[in-house]
Design a protein around this nucleic acid. Structure first.
Lengths: 332, 332
DNA sequence: CTGGGCGATGTTATCGGTAACATCGACAGC
DNA sequence: GCTGTCGATGTTACCGATAACATCGCCCAG
């Protein structure tokens, strides 16, 4: 078979014996078409294996059916899962997805790609902005294109969706407080991470409400940093609320190395509910985030904004607590 | 400021006092342009905040500068990391990325989106195909568009890149054999996963070479399945080579519950080298896959294919072994 | 009987670029 | 001095669709 150029709308029209415009109407499910015309055109499309050219379509109609996803720090667990949820939901809603990752290990990412998404080529933009610097980037983007930000700390003027971080932190803290803990240390994430700040806020609020002094250590999300902080943890502490599961894991490791038992001597709560934490030693009590619901909600909101329904400015997905074996009543 | 329609190439031309074609040449870095003309046009572009319309460009030039990424099972660790590496490398090479995820928990994914990528809209296709069923899907795709498959089991007619799975398995096995183990069980991944098969092959080859009988258990990648298999593991076994880190984790958990010490009684090797395995109890010896190198290589190859250099059909990224504390000489 | 409305379809312009060819002046070679 | 070549730029057609408006029967109300 010779390599024939891809058929266009006029080839189909010629074969079906109609004008190209009628073919266009078939493609777009225009109501006023006689059934047998529609059938003839469909048959012609089939025969030629015709596929509409989406670029031409985008050019003429000024719609691309494409959503741009900009994600900061895709290597991190939270952002990665958020991206997954968002892509899935977008696809399910009939949108194609263009992804740009930025801020991988410090690099600022392809400015050109950002420009492109910000300029044309997408009908809407979903920005996964876990750090304060991602919000800075946000402001460089083209206005005038519907934009939704996945962030716990929405900026004025943007629609935003997020899991309720401080609420989740509150659940973790309630759990520890109910068990009877009073000296509870928070192992926070990096200061420029908005999720980290929100969890810290939740921790602070709970401690304040309980009349206990806040004690905060700052890690960098990695298990290594959790280990380092665990190696120097004050022995008087009876519980630690870690801002993510990885740091919790490192912390537990360090405590084990020091002969400190979890949960016998120290209770530990994590955040994220990674797939494997049920098999950590001990199985980790942690706060679960539903990323697929988050993605769903993000796309839902974005689609509404694109359609001109500009109502929902900020939405929140609740977190939930999964209690496992890393928490117990304090022994001291 | 009024919402003015986005400026096009002719607006820029008018402002700069040249023809629109000259502007096009500036955009495309055409060599024969006087420096001061170039500057004038650049200034005009700046002043109008002009951004070329990529759809129009794609339509006229038949190039989109976009690579389509189709990923099967994006929720799994391997595919997810591969995707990350690929997207990063593509962006770094100046391509934008359109992602389609399929096979998420059984669903076949958006056929329409697949069609689209297969039809037009992308210059090249990178398919992340971890399962045999992904290869089936591959055949439904449009031929005639440069395609690269990330898979350990290339299909005839496709360019392919992968981490050397069976080689990696061989390294794990050499390590265990050198330690003196003879009864080594393989905890395999699901049968329809090509990576699982390749690792199994590597295991089989090593055992055959060592004159030892192969003993294979099959899990589903999850830590839960590792736990289930660990709960019934024959006590005579002195080492287990798990096809991924998560199953290894579950296995160790189960063994711990049974009072079996790792590595005292049983040595365990994993596969993947997840970020946290150094903090498992015990820190896990495992085979590392360099996903970012994989992505790099994949895009490199794909770009070469797109440019018409059709030489490299199959490329392999070496794996490496990271020895930690979950392996030791057998005590029995 | 006739004009208006509407359903079904066709005609032409347009979207914002690039490709191909045309033009025009300057400069080199004979 | 004439011609050929090349550099710099302009002109026109075209990519493959949609938008807007035109056309043409046909049916129904006045």
């Amino acid at each position: 078979m010779t390599k024939r150029p891809r058929p266009n709308i006029r080839d189909v029209a010629a074969l079906a014996g109609v004008s190209h415009m009628t073919v266009s109407r078939v493609i777009n499910d225009h109501p006023s078409l006689r059934d047998d015309t529609r059938r003839r055109v469909r048959a012609a499309m089939e025969e030629l294996d015709y596929r509409p050219n989406s670029d031409a379509r985008a050019l003429a109609s000024r719609r691309t059916d494409r959503i741009g996803v900009i994600i900061d720090s895709p290597a991190q667990v939270g952002p990665a899962n958020t991206m997954l949820g968002v892509e899935q939901a977008a696809l399910a809603s009939g949108y194609r997805v263009s992804t740009v990752t930025v801020g991988t290990d410090g690099r600022t990412g392809s400015r050109a790609a950002l420009q492109h998404l910000g300029a044309q080529g997408v009908d809407g933009l979903c920005v996964i902005a876990p750090r304060s610097s991602s919000l800075t980037m946000l402001r460089e983007l083209d206005r005038g294109i519907p934009t939704l930000v996945v962030t716990p700390t929405p900026d004025d003027g943007y629609h935003a969706v997020a899991v309720d971080q401080s609420g989740g932190a509150g659940m973790a803290m309630d759990h520890l407080l109910e068990l009877g803990h009073r000296r509870i240390v928070h192992l926070a994430g990096p200061d420029d991470w908005l999720d980290a700040r929100a969890r810290l806020d939740g921790y602070r609020a709970s401690m304040a409400a309980a009349g206990a002094p806040a004690e905060v250590l700052v890690g960098d999300w990695t298990a290594d940093s959790g280990y380092a902080l665990g190696a120097t943890l004050d022995p008087g502490v009876t519980a630690v609320f870690a801002a993510n599961d990885q740091m919790a894991l490192g912390l537990v490791h360090a405590l084990a190395d020091r002969g400190i038992d979890v949960p016998g001597d120290v209770s530990v709560v994590g955040f994220d509910d990674l797939a494997d934490v049920a098999h950590y030693r001990p199985p980790l009590t942690t706060v679960r985030q539903d990323f697929s619901a988050l993605g769903q909600r993000a796309i839902e909101t974005l689609v509404a904004v694109m359609a001109g329904h500009a109502r929902p400015r900020i939405a929140t997905i609740p977190a939930s607590l999964t209690v496992r074996a890393s928490t117990a009543t304090p022994s001291r």
